[in-house]
Design a protein around this nucleic acid. Structure first.
Lengths: 193, 193
DNA sequence: TCTTAAATATGATACAGATCATAATTATTC
DNA sequence: GAATAATTATGATCTGTATCATATTTAAGA
């Protein structure tokens, strides 16, 4: 955890309210954001207003580095899913941290690798697989770290926004997966088998 | 360029023939591959045998690190597009390089960030945008670094495999873009305007 | 230059999933 | 616990692109 170090060094904690936008596509990147508490979603929005969830970041994680590192305008929105506390680290401080702390740069490399893994997996799904397969893949991915009997706390709409499908298609697809015994449903909640 | 350093240090150069497979999905990652010459494509293949191009790597570039770094089996094939020369750097040597050479680790961070950018862009396209829009985006992306009048040397099939479309759809879509004056066509070649 | 292969082109049909409309269930708030 | 909002559910229709079939053009090899 690098957040505590940053707090100790006196970086200010910024509170953001649920649903507020931290940055938008087209903006020039100036900060990397560390999450002290709360949850942030990163989404791109099509011209017709449809959201695609590029990632969700939780307490202890950070976001916004790639744009800063390659010095290109953001392509996504980042929006607070809940009231959250962030520490915004400016470009120079971020590069300083990267250079001075090789553990941090190793951590960043692994974080970026993990995100690449997720995106490669989803690209294959969106490019080649149909609704049911996509849903099975994303649900299994979300199941990692959950125990049997645990339920996912994501809505059908969330799954739609992660898979490029529409809610109705997700609802029907999830039902098919349940019929096939791959998942359990209880009051609409998706439960790990 | 880190390849020369590796050659100087005595790492062996491995020749691979066009169309040969360097690694496959499911294999445990053991090396990072530096390309001395040639070209490698990274593809995932659907159950029905349809390829999706995750990336193309050229001379001077390297591939295979994310799987090694997060220690998960590969999800893609890497296949030589041409006869190529590679240097395979084992896990320990790779981590040693990362730790000892902060320029290299900075380079890796930027490389990973660039790949994330590309994948985020394509995810948005595949999730939300239809054929023509996808084609416009990928073609413009491939146009970067090209001058006006230059032509893309990718086939319609390549574009299909990068966008999750089928050849016929790409052919029709490219024609539409040409009709709208966004690109030029000469003997089927796509030319930057 | 002729031959063969690869890539591009074009039309017809099929189908998965989007879209639209509306209802039923579950969760939240007062 | 009733009222309201959010989420899940279900049917009917529409549509973009896949699929299939076949032809034409361009490139590569002999």
């Amino acid at each position: 955890m690098y957040i505590q170090q940053l707090i100790d060094k006196g970086f200010p904690i910024k509170s953001v309210l649920k649903d507020s936008i931290i940055y938008e596509p087209g903006m020039k990147p100036r900060f990397v954001y560390f999450i002290k508490s709360g949850e942030i979603r990163m989404v791109t929005v099509s011209e017709e207003g449809k959201e695609f969830i590029q990632g969700v970041f939780k307490s202890g994680q950070y976001f916004g580095e790639p744009a800063l590192l390659v010095n290109r305008p953001y392509l996504a929105f980042t929006i607070a899913n809940k009231n959250s506390e962030l520490i915004a680290l400016g470009r120079d401080d971020f590069f300083k941290l990267l250079k001075s702390d090789s553990d941090f740069s190793m951590d960043l490399i692994k974080v970026l690798s993990n995100r690449l893994f997720y995106k490669s997996m989803m690209l294959e799904e969106l490019a080649n697989e149909k609704a049911e397969h996509r849903l099975e893949t994303i649900i299994n991915y979300l199941f990692t770290d959950l125990a049997k009997g645990d339920s996912l706390n994501v809505t059908r709409q969330d799954l739609a926004d992660m898979t490029g499908l529409r809610v109705e298609t997700v609802i029907r697809g999830v039902k098919l997966l349940a019929d096939k015994g791959l998942i359990l449903l209880h009051k609409g909640k998706i439960i790990k088998k």
